[in-house]
Structures are given as C-alpha cells and as structure tokens.
Computed example of a mutant assay.
Amino acid sequence: MIKWIIAAEILFWVAILAGLFARYVLHRKRLSYLLFLLTPIIDLALIALTVVDLQSGAVATIAHGVSVIYIGVSIAYGKTMIAWADDKFQTYILKKESAKKPLYGTEKGLHELKMWGRHVLAYAIGSVMFWLIITLINSNSTEALFNVWRIWSIALLIDGGISLSYLLFPKRAQSR
C-alpha cells in the first residue's frame, strides 16, 4: 500500500508542476487547469485502491490510514498547496519576486487559525472516510485505521492549541 501512497504523492506534484509549466512557460492556461484537475482524480484513485486492497482481505495497516489522511489533507489544502507551489515556481523558476509578505501580530494569528480550520476540514473529511471504510470492510482487521484516526485526533488538538497561541502571543515584526 505504501508504494501507492508514494506514487500518488509523486503524481500529485507532477500534475501541479506540469500545470504550472503549462501556464507560465507554454502559456496554455486551459491546459494548466486540466492538469490541476488531475489532482483530485489521483486522490480518488488512491482511496479506491485502499478500499480494494482492504476488501480483498488485506489487514489494515498504518499505510492504509495514511492514505485516508492524504485524501482529507489534499481536499482541504489542495488550493492552498497549488497557490504555494505557484508562488515558489514564480520565485525560483521565473525569477519573480514573491508577492507573499510575512505576517505578524493579529494578522498572523488569524492566518494560523484559518489554516487550523483547513486542518479541521481535512480531519472531518478523513474521519468520514475512515468510518465509511471501517463500516464497508466490516472486519476486525481495521484496528490500525482506528489507531491512526485517534493519533490524528490528538494531532488536531495540538495543532489547534499552537494555532491559538499565535493570537495569544502574537509574533512581532523584527525591528531593523
């Protein structure tokens, strides 16, 4: 299963880089959209492989759980990841100055809470997927999925505390 996760991750980033190349180097905006649209298809293929693997008798492993997390994160953060890759592509490949400015104070705190909100969305999507798979498989061999979900639950709470700390203890701009 781990090989499918690695393949999906590689294909995900290849599709994004190809989309950025099509957009900025080839100046083919519609082609870039088509390439970006491949990313959710890659995600769906990964979840389908996970379900097929488990239905054919495989014992659930941490890798199966990671594939479910991957889906939630990819859906919740997909647009953000593409925007990040777009900024990096323009900065390092096209040698343009990044339009992104550092955030400080309340603005940074609100941004971190917004990112935590994306984490909550990823967790909600992943949780639904976890429970659907556990119910669909209807086997005693899904304990690993439940354990991965529990660890993710703890990570979500820790991330929420860290995100909130940016509001309680705001990051200040460095004086020159």
Rank of each mutant, 00 (worst) to 15 (best):
L37K: 11
I125A: 07
V59S: 13
L167T: 03
L103A: 08
T106P: 04
D159L: 07
L145M: 03
I2S: 11
I41R: 11
G57H: 06
V14W: 00
L49W: 13
L156Q: 05
K95W: 10
K88G: 00
K108E: 12
R118S: 11
K29C: 02
S32Y: 00
K79D: 09
Y77L: 01
N140W: 08
T106Y: 13
F12E: 01
K101M: 09
H111I: 00
P102D: 09
R30F: 11
K101T: 13
K101Q: 09
I69A: 12
L157G: 08
R118M: 14
P40R: 09
G65K: 01
A48Y: 14
K101G: 04
W149P: 06
E107F: 07
G117E: 05
V51A: 13
L167N: 00
Y77Q: 01
L157M: 03
A58K: 09
P40L: 09
L94W: 04
K100Y: 12
M115A: 12
S74N: 15
V59F: 10
F89V: 02
Y70A: 14
L26E: 10
L145N: 03
L46H: 07
W131Y: 15
F12V: 01
H27K: 15
S32M: 07
M1Y: 10
S56K: 15
M129Q: 10
P170L: 04
G117T: 06
Q55W: 13
S141V: 07
V128M: 06
A144K: 08
A22N: 08
L167V: 05
W131Q: 08
S67I: 00
Y166F: 14
D159V: 02
T61V: 09
L20K: 01
M81K: 07
E107W: 03
H119F: 12
I2Q: 10
I16F: 08
L20M: 03
T80Q: 02
T142A: 09
M129F: 14
A144G: 10
P102W: 10
I10H: 00
V25R: 15
G160M: 04
S141T: 12
L54M: 01
A7W: 07
I154M: 09
L167P: 05
S74P: 04
Q174G: 11
T135L: 10
E143C: 05
I137L: 08
L94A: 07
Y104I: 08
T135Y: 12
Y33Q: 13
W84F: 15
I41Y: 05
Y77E: 00
I75F: 14
I47K: 00
H111F: 15
R28P: 08
Y166C: 02
K79Y: 14
L113A: 05
